[in-house]
Simulated scan of single mutants.
Amino acid sequence: MTYDTHGPAASPLAGHSRGGRRPTLAAVAQRAGVSLKTASRVLNQEPNVATATRERVQAAALALGFRRNAVAADLARGGASRLVGFVTGDLANPFYSALASGIERELRGRGLQLITASTDEDPERERALTEELVERRVGALVVTSTAREHPALRDELAGGLPVVLVDRPALDVEADTVVIDNRGGVRTAVSHLLARGHRRIGLVGDESRLWTFQERKEAFVATLAEAGIADPGRYVRDGAHDADRARAFVTELLSLDEPPTALVTANNKITVGALHALRDRQGSAVAERGQVALIGFDDFELADLLGVTVIGYDAAEMGRQAAALAMARAADPTRPAQLVVVPTLLVERGSGEVRPATSVPTR
């Protein structure tokens, strides 16, 4: 499996003090009249810096009250005291567990430890957890963000803390980021269903505010529109944050006078809810309308035994990539922000290969 790494995605980190409370490395460099890299080398006690330059940087740091993040420096040098924080959406979701596993494996090989905290997709809890982990002096943060704005992350980045966004980018900060090829995966799923004769295709997704669902929805609608399907958003439903809500949405869609003949479910929990709805449908009046094709975004346990076609990817490798970016950022705070896009793969198992019972005209 190959990974596309695009960079630079942003200019080197710019420094701003955290609400006036924490002078940044950038402020020290500016006061001393040196580059950010030179200031970093001096404060990390690296060799081969002119004595006059070293003294000037040290004087600037003292005057500003700059406090070096010793734990982040340990990350770069392989020191003894290391903690990395992972702020995740929902640990009950196997996707996040796989992410955490990948992060932990990469850190373990470097003698580092992972602290994991779940936001339950609550932006305010995300802010509180971020602050709490920083107070514990973590050397880096990996975050799957549910918030729209990220002032706390922006301040920590400016203060020199390595921060990596995984699965969802933070559009208001410049940070290393690892995401799935959401658009490519959905395009593959929809094209697969179109090729099998489906024209009434539904999408059941998560909260509309989440970047991942926005990407998947836009790709879904665009792919149908390009295929000449009128009103491509007709069967789109969002807000299915759990399996029960997804089950209700799918039940509602299949009860329409002209129900979709195929479904794309935007994450693993939604797929489980859809499977329950399809099971409920067996033996009912709507079952006479024929089988419904199903493709789920995210693989999940037992999907192979259940014959569920999915858009898969390596979630653990996403975590490993995120941890590696954090280590690289700790080693070189001035490196440009990197974007890693993890590819997806269509895994055919039967449910996505069902054809519509009768020919369905394009609307």
Rank of each mutant, 00 (worst) to 15 (best):
R41T: 02
L25V: 10
V34F: 02
R22P: 10
A29C: 08
R22W: 15
P23H: 14
Q58T: 09
R41K: 06
A27P: 02
V34C: 03
A50V: 09
L62W: 15
A63N: 12
N44H: 14
E46V: 01
K37S: 11
V34K: 02
E46Q: 12
T51C: 01
A52Y: 05
T38S: 07
T53R: 00
R56Y: 09
V42D: 04
A27V: 09
A61V: 12
V57I: 10
N44M: 07
A29H: 04
A63F: 08
Q45V: 09
R21L: 15
A39Y: 01
N48S: 08
A59Q: 15
A32D: 06
R41Y: 06
E46N: 01
V57D: 06
L62P: 09
G33T: 06
P23R: 13
V57N: 08
T24K: 12
R54Y: 02
R21N: 14
V28A: 05
L36W: 04
R54P: 03
N44F: 07
A27C: 11
P47E: 00
V42Q: 03
V28D: 04
Q30V: 12
T38A: 02
P47H: 04
A29R: 05
T53L: 01
A59R: 14
Q58S: 10
L25F: 12
V34Q: 04
A61N: 14
T24Y: 12
V28R: 07
N48W: 04
